[in-house]
Design a protein around this nucleic acid. Structure first.
Lengths: 162, 162
DNA sequence: GTCCCTATACTCGGATAGCAAGTGTCCGAGTATAGGCGG
DNA sequence: CCGCCTATACTCGGACACTTGCTATCCGAGTATAGGGAC
C-alpha cells in the first residue's frame, strides 16, 4: 500500500498557495521549480485539485493557480481524496460468496465482518486527516521554519511573481 | 492507494484456520479451493504469513497450515503488516529540502508537518486494526452466518480433511 | 503377526513471466497582455 | 494623447510512452504416509 507521490506534492503546493497574499496566482511551472519536481507531472496533480475545487486556475499571460476557498476550509483529506480518488483502500471482493460453502445471495445482505473492520479503520484514518487543514499546516510552518529559509522563500517569490 | 488483494485472502484464510479444531492443519490448495482463488498465488501470501509467525506449516503428505498462535493473539494489523510490509503508506521525500529556498540540512531535524500529520492518521488506522483479532472475526462469523452455510462448510471440511 | 524398508504421493517454497496502475513527458487550445497603429 | 486592434508569449489541459510493483504461474526440494517384503 502506497500513497501516490502526487499527494505529497499537492499538499506542499497548497501550503505554498495558502501562504501567498489573497488573489495572487502562481504558475504551475513555478510551483514545480520551487519543489524541484517534474513540471508536467505536477500539472497533472494540479488539475486533479482543480476538478475537486481545491484550487482555481486562470489561463493567460499572468495566470496560474490559487486556492479555491479559504485555507481553513481545505483539509488534508480533501487533497488526498482529490489525488487518490474516493475508492477505499480495502476492496471487498466477496470471496465469501464463492467456494463450496456458498449459499443464496440473499444471505449476504450485510458486508462481511472483515470488510467492516477494514473500513472502520479507514474511517479513523480519514477522520484524522479531516482534522488538519491547510491553514494549520501554514501556521505550523510559520512557527517552525528557520527565518533564513523564510527570507529566501519570500525573496524568490517576490522576484518571480512580479 | 490500494491494499493488495492478498490481504483479503489472507484474512479469510486465518478466519478459516481459526475455526478449525486445535492442531488440525489445512493444505494451501484446499484454502484456495474454499475461496476460489489461484492456489499458487495464495501460497505466496501464506508464506508471508508464515514468515511473520502468524501461521505454521508442516510439509509432507498430511501437512498444511495452522495458526501459529491463539486466534485472540493475532490482530488484523498483524496480517496487513505481514502481507503489505512495514513501510508507511505516506513516504516523505523531503522535497522541502529542495528548491530555491533550501537551507542547510541542520535546519531539518524534525519531520515536516505534512508527514507528521499523515503518519498520525496512519497511526489511528493501525490502532483500529490492532483492536480486532482473528478470534473476534471468528466469533462474529459464528453469530451471523446462516446455519445453512455453516453446515455446508462443515460438511466440506470434514470430507476434505480426513 | 510384527517390524523394517522403499517407493510414492503429497506438501511447501522459491524462482520465473504477465499485466495494470502509477510515473513521466509531449504537444495543442485558449487567453490576458504588450506593443503598434490609427484617429 | 487616447483608444483599438493585432500579434505574441504565456498559461492550462488533455493525449501519449515508460517503469515499477502487484498479479499469476511454474517447477523443484523435502517429508509423512502406504504398501510390500523379510523375519
Amino acid at each position: 500500500m502506497k500513497l501516490s507521490d502526487g499527494v505529497e506534492w499537492a499538499t506542499h503546493c497548497c501550503t505554498i498557495l495558502g501562504s501567498l497574499p489573497t488573489g495572487v496566482a502562481m504558475p504551475g511551472h513555478r510551483l514545480a521549480e520551487f519543489h524541484e519536481v517534474p513540471p508536467d507531472y505536477l500539472g497533472k496533480q494540479l488539475q486533479s485539485l482543480r476538478k475537486a475545487g481545491i484550487v482555481e486556475s486562470t489561463p493567460g499571460r499572468r495566470g496560474g493557480f490559487r486556492l479555491g476557498r479559504p485555507a481553513a476550509d481545505i483539509s488534508l483529506l480533501d487533497i488526498v481524496t482529490a489525488i487518490e480518488g474516493h475508492e477505499p483502500a480495502f476492496r471487498c471482493t466477496e470471496i465469501r460468496q464463492r467456494g463450496p460453502s456458498a449459499v443464496g445471495r440473499k444471505h449476504y445482505v450485510r458486508p462481511c465482518g472483515i470488510a467492516r473492520a477494514m473500513w472502520r479503520a479507514e474511517e479513523k484514518w480519514r477522520a484524522e486527516l479531516e482534522r488538519v487543514s491547510i491553514a494549520d499546516l501554514v501556521a505550523e510552518l510559520d512557527a517552525t521554519v528557520a527565518t533564513e529559509q523564510t527570507e529566501k522563500a519570500i525573496d524568490w517569490l517576490t522576484e518571480v511573481l512580479t
